[in-house]
Amino acid sequence: MRKPLVMGNWKLNGSKDMAKSLVAGLRSELSNNTACNVAIAPPVVYLDFVKHQLDGSNIILGAQDVGVNLSGAYTGEVSVEMLKDIGVTHVIIGHSERRTYHKESDEFIAKKFGVIKEAGLVPVLCIGETEAENEAGQTQAVCARQIDAVIKALGVQAFNGAVIAYEPVWAIGTGKSATPAQAQAVHKFIRDHIAKQDAKVAQQVIIQYGGSVNDKNAAELFTQPDIDGALVGGASLKADAFATIVKAAEQAKK
């Protein structure tokens, strides 16, 4: 039985005061015995601060990105070993904002995936199509291409213990969201695509939905059989809304 993961991506938001208040709110709203895993990914400069705020809770510390180099003359980069050193266990890679603004290729993202796995951490691989690709009927082809880059570089076994976040680009931060049926169809395609290589790997991989997930639409999304939680953007900045999403994930898997 897959345990859902609800992960909050704070993106470029936050301050010490905000982080302290938000974590305190989550700790009061959520019990330590949740039926789903819960993670938050603050900006890198607040990771250590947030780690201390999380002490004694079951909330997982995640990072929003990582470099491919472990050390050396790479000004501004952060290595996977540095993230591991301060307690990060999950690392988001391949987010559409990184693909778009930083021109990260499928192959480069696969390289990050390998670095994360090598360090014993959990990659959270974001995949998904743009609005134009969706309208052109290319959703499956895009998702397959982005997954296949990892399989080609590392083998399908790399998805053991990993997370995939299906995030249709047209639904991120737009208020639009795929219907539960649309999202389920893509999640099933992703699982079936991996199953062609290895059914056991496909069965255990966590596939989250992301794209304007909020406290209003989460419950219906989570009732779908192949949706294992969510990667949450804006709603993760509000303790009550994020807690409602977590509770919806718990309820759906009872």
Score class of each variant (00 low, 15 high):
residue 69 N to Q: 15
residue 195 A to I: 06
residue 183 A to T: 03
residue 71 S to W: 05
residue 7 M to T: 13
residue 23 V to C: 11
residue 24 A to C: 04
residue 144 A to F: 07
residue 191 R to I: 13
residue 193 H to S: 09
residue 71 S to Q: 14
residue 185 A to W: 01
residue 243 A to M: 11
residue 136 A to R: 12
residue 53 Q to I: 01
residue 22 L to W: 10
residue 217 N to T: 01
residue 185 A to N: 13
residue 160 N to V: 12
residue 146 Q to L: 06
residue 114 G to A: 08
residue 70 L to T: 12
residue 145 R to W: 02
residue 162 A to N: 08
residue 38 V to N: 04
residue 87 G to K: 03
residue 17 D to W: 05
residue 246 V to F: 01
residue 162 A to E: 10
residue 218 A to C: 11
residue 112 K to V: 10
residue 205 V to S: 07
residue 192 D to T: 09
residue 224 Q to D: 11
residue 108 F to T: 14
residue 208 Q to R: 09
residue 245 I to E: 08
residue 224 Q to S: 13
residue 172 I to Q: 12
residue 27 R to A: 09
residue 14 G to V: 11
residue 162 A to Q: 12
residue 117 K to W: 02
residue 89 T to H: 02
residue 203 Q to E: 15
residue 171 A to L: 06
residue 70 L to P: 00
residue 144 A to L: 12
residue 143 C to H: 05
residue 45 V to K: 04
residue 233 G to C: 10
residue 154 L to S: 14
residue 153 A to F: 02
residue 81 E to W: 02
residue 197 Q to D: 09
residue 38 V to W: 05
residue 244 T to S: 15
residue 31 S to K: 14
residue 174 T to V: 04
residue 15 S to N: 08
residue 11 K to G: 02
residue 137 G to D: 11
residue 225 P to F: 05
residue 110 A to H: 04
residue 129 E to F: 03
residue 142 V to W: 02
residue 69 N to I: 06
residue 46 Y to R: 02
residue 119 A to M: 10
residue 62 G to E: 12
residue 143 C to R: 07
residue 184 Q to G: 03
residue 19 A to V: 03
residue 92 I to L: 15
residue 74 Y to R: 00
residue 216 K to W: 03
residue 64 Q to V: 03
residue 59 I to V: 14
residue 141 A to T: 13
residue 29 E to M: 01
residue 83 L to K: 04
residue 43 P to F: 09
residue 187 H to R: 10
residue 105 S to G: 09
residue 243 A to G: 08
residue 228 D to K: 13
residue 251 Q to E: 15
residue 111 K to F: 00
residue 252 A to C: 04
